[in-house]
């Protein structure tokens, strides 16, 4: 169990490193080595740590712990073939962590980050409709059942393409440097993590590594079906590289526009689900 967690944290951080490297190469820069993000976490964890005097102290520390706990839960839900609904619930709960990070510090930059995070939360909730689409097709929301369905009927990627696109946008929105990552856009310093430094930041980076691993792996499991570990790793890296390309080549959108695009996508998915519900 614990070995899965530690493995996932390291792989997630490594994926972050690959992501940065790929973006750098696409933009014609050498970029940092791919284990840079792991070093980053270690560096942060060795830094001196305290809590800002303006912060809401309990909350300030609690969100870091909750962030790690939330994504550990997600990992286990995924590994045990639990409910997809629960996996998405955990994903939404991550938004609470984002809000909490920004709000708890009392810093105006953190607050801006939190406000932007609230906006994006509102637009990501409707992407839940994806789940309804999967449910209508496979008749189950247990990840193990979905895998069994795919083993019998072939990948969901082709059967439920709109749902796959919606989930792809969800994953994209969560990547560093993505056009949807308005929360950490540089004009508000580091957004909602501005005040979390030292050990707190290290914990958060570990949680984010876990998050990247879980999201990429979930996408593979949900839309490509069960596959051996090595093949899954290759698929994850390929998926990550496709995301890196988008991140490297597209500019950061304005906060309101990201919301409009995401709500628009969600609206299309809702129409798709309703139509499918009527036809099926």
């Amino acid at each position: 169990m614990i070995e899965y967690l530690i493995f996932a944290v390291f792989v997630g951080l490594l994926l972050h490193g690959i992501h940065r490297k790929a973006i750098a190469r696409i933009q014609g820069r050498p970029g940092p080595p791919i284990w840079q993000e792991i070093l980053h976490v270690l560096k942060f964890s060795f830094k001196e740590t305290w809590i800002p005097a303006t912060a809401s102290q309990t909350l300030f520390v609690a969100v870091v712990i909750i962030a790690i706990g939330v994504w550990s839960t997600a990992l286990f839900v995924l590994l045990t073939g639990g409910s997809l609904l629960l996996l998405f619930a955990v994903y939404m709960l991550h938004k609470i962590v984002e809000h909490g990070l920004g709000l708890s510090s009392g810093s105006p930059y953190g607050k801006f980050g939190a406000i932007r995070s609230v906006m994006s939360a509102a637009s990501e909730i409707p992407l839940f409709a994806t789940i309804a689409a999967i449910y209508l097709i496979t008749g189950s929301l247990m990840i193990s059942d979905i895998q069994a369905w795919q083993a019998a009927h072939g990948p969901l990627l082709f059967t439920a393409l709109p749902a796959a696109i919606a989930l792809y946008i969800v994953v994209l929105a969560k990547m560093h440097y993505s056009p949807f990552a308005v929360i950490e856009s540089k004009e508000i310093v580091s957004g909602n993590v501005t005040e979390h430094f030292g050990v707190w930041r290290a914990g958060l980076e570990a949680a984010f590594g876990l998050k990247t691993f879980v999201l990429l792996y979930a996408f593979i499991v949900l839309f490509l079906g069960p596959m051996p570990l090595l093949l899954a790793a290759v698929a994850m890296v390929l998926l990550l590289l496709s995301l890196s390309f988008i991140c490297a080549l597209s500019p950061m959108l304005s906060p309101f526009d990201t919301v409009t695009i995401q709500i628009g996508t969600a609206g299309l998915i809702v129409v798709y689900v309703l139509l499918m519900g009527v036809i099926v």
Binding site: S254, F256, D257, V259, T260, I261, I263, G264
Partner: peptide, 11 residues
């Protein structure tokens, strides 16, 4: 188009 929708949504 997107920008105009955004403007309506942001008020």
């Amino acid at each position: 188009m997107i920008r105009r929708i955004s403007e309506i949504l942001s008020e």
